[in-house]
């Protein structure tokens, strides 16, 4: 089972590596941006469409 911490887009918190941010590049019809969403390092990423093996 892949987990978030194995993904290229996962950036762990220095103070607590069990937590981190999923950082992704998004391009919508008007603008491009980077977004960050807090995630747990051990979260199951099996059904995540953005998962990219580190």
């Amino acid at each position: 089972m892949p987990t978030c911490k194995e993904c290229k887009k996962f950036f762990p918190l220095e103070e607590d590596p069990k937590k981190g941010d999923c950082v992704q590049r998004v391009v919508d019809p008007r603008q491009a941006f980077y977004q960050a969403k807090p995630v747990e390092a051990d979260r199951n990423a099996a059904s995540c469409p953005s998962f990219e093996k580190r």
């Binding site: 998004v26 603008q31 491009a32 941006f33 980077y34 977004q35 960050a36 969403k37 807090p38």
Partner: peptide, 10 residues
């Protein structure tokens, strides 16, 4: 505030 998604536009 701790958990919402944030973003930075180009």
């Amino acid at each position: 505030l701790d958990n919402k998604t944030i973003f930075i536009t180009d």
